[in-house]
Write a protein that binds this DNA or RNA. Structure first.
Length: 423
DNA sequence: AAGCCTTTGAAGTTC
DNA sequence: GAACTTCAAAGGCTT
């Protein structure tokens, strides 16, 4: 019986083992330790989590552009999937998470189709047949609490999800069973929430209590801290075209989700690099059911509305090249992959040239994309490349063990398709 | 020091 | 209206 029929849908995302997010059915059952020890994952588990994979990984291969699902640059030339395959409306409306799309498998996830990159593999995982779901819940609460105490999770929502802050959601206790937090949070951190000194002094909170600032926020920006007490000084928020008074875009649903979940994901793995964490978060996002996503879409909507109220007349255009100088233009996209990663993908990392493994310039392919025989094959190795080698080995072993992982990998990895297309 | 990487989504521009 | 670009967060990495 599928896990989805045993457990309330609302609980599934929050109990989703990280070890399943990136590589469906990646681990053989014997390695599928139940990932919910009371006080965080064991080192063994942590080492088996996808976060230990190298940070340069194949992306999903699909992007939304203006509400349309498009192939990522690496998959150019491949036909984009039809919108309906991803639960999109025929008019290309962005995924209306709250609507749900029946897929004939008892869920409303648009990604539940076996043909989609993020099919729900959770019910295959032994973790979900584990008898002690309370332990899972306890662990998740502990994870949030730990993150909050480190200052990593300052979101009241995250805190309330974990039951960490009773005045603002405590009592819901278990993630996924709480009512929508919208409207519950004051526009400033509840008393007693521990913050790191940096966040305490420089952070500001959005209308949802989400911390809007970061270490990158300018001093002028932070001085205009958006608490309810000085909300009336919205003059300070009025956008002026200088860096000092840069008004940032409101966060979208995914950004809110990332902000909330980053600490948790980071706490479960050794990687710190955001690009890698973001990949994991992206897949976690796809794994969320629509109910869960709807929560963030609604929060984002509120963010936009409040942002518009506080910053009348502001448009996203105001932030284009706001510092007066353009960012470095992205490199010209080419149909021809020029590095091992694009050619072989993460699953064949063993075939990458050494410089690629060390994130240096690929020497296997010349500038016009032609393969150089044994190019770069004999560059000195270091501990990092050894790690990558072992990851590649594990990755390929996983593929052998799991046909569904194989198909999932081929559908999620643009590099895999690139490899296929380039022979 | 500034920008890149990487993710999704919103909103902008270009054709 | 389709296609494309920019920018939101994050922090290690590259130029």
């Amino acid at each position: 019986m599928p896990f989805s029929s045993l457990v309330p849908t609302s609980m599934m995302p929050s109990l989703y083992p990280l070890s399943l997010i990136q590589k469906p059915l990646a681990l053989p059952p014997t390695n599928c330790t139940f990932p919910f020890p009371p006080f965080g994952p064991s080192p063994e588990l942590a080492s088996s989590m996808p976060c230990t994979l190298p940070h340069r990984q194949a992306s999903s291969g699909l992007h939304y552009y203006g509400g349309r699902m498009m192939p990522s640059p690496l998959t150019r030339g491949s036909p984009a999937p039809s919108p309906s395959a991803f639960g999109l409306l025929h008019n290309g409306t962005p995924p209306p998470a709250h609507m749900g799309f029946p897929n004939g498998r008892g869920t409303t996830s648009p990604f539940a189709s076996p043909h989609t990159p993020f099919a729900p593999f959770h019910h295959h995982h032994p973790a979900f047949s584990h008898p002690d779901m309370n332990a899972a819940s306890a662990w998740m609460q502990q994870a949030y609490m730990n993150a909050a105490l480190r200052g990593g999770t300052t979101s009241p929502m995250a805190a309330s999800m974990a039951g960490a802050y009773p005045p603002y959601g405590g009592g819901y206790g278990r993630i996924g069973t709480m009512p929508s937090p919208l409207g519950l949070f004051p526009p400033f951190p509840p008393f007693g929430i521990p913050h790191s000194p940096d966040q305490h002094h420089h952070g500001r909170f959005s209308s949802h209590g989400h911390e809007v600032s970061s270490s990158r926020m300018s001093h002028a920006d932070s001085s205009a801290s958006s608490t309810s007490s000085n909300r009336d000084s919205s003059e300070r928020y009025r956008h002026r075209k200088d860096k000092q008074n840069h008004v940032k875009k409101p966060l979208n649903a995914f950004m809110l989700y990332m902000k909330e979940m980053r600490a948790e994901v980071q706490s479960q793995c050794t990687l710190k690099e955001s690009a890698a964490i973001n990949q994991i978060l992206g897949k976690k996002w796809h794994a969320l059911d629509r109910q869960e996503q709807a929560k963030y879409y609604e929060m984002a909507k509120q963010e936009r509305e409040n942002h518009a109220r506080v910053n009348p007349g502001w448009t996203a255009k105001d932030n284009y090249a706001v510092c007066g100088k353009k960012k470095r233009r992205k490199k010209e996209k080419s149909d021809e992959p020029k590095k091992c990663r694009a050619i072989f993908g993460i699953d064949r990392m063993g075939e990458w040239c050494k410089p690629c493994k060390r994130k240096k310039k690929c020497v296997r392919y010349s500038q016009n994309g032609t393969l150089l025989v044994n190019g770069g094959g004999d560059y000195g190795s270091d501990s990092k490349s050894s790690v990558l080698d072992s990851v590649a080995h594990v990755s390929s072993s996983m593929q052998t063990l799991s046909p569904s992982a194989d198909s999932a990998a081929s559908s999620t990895s643009p590099s895999s398709s690139a490899a296929a297309s380039t022979g």
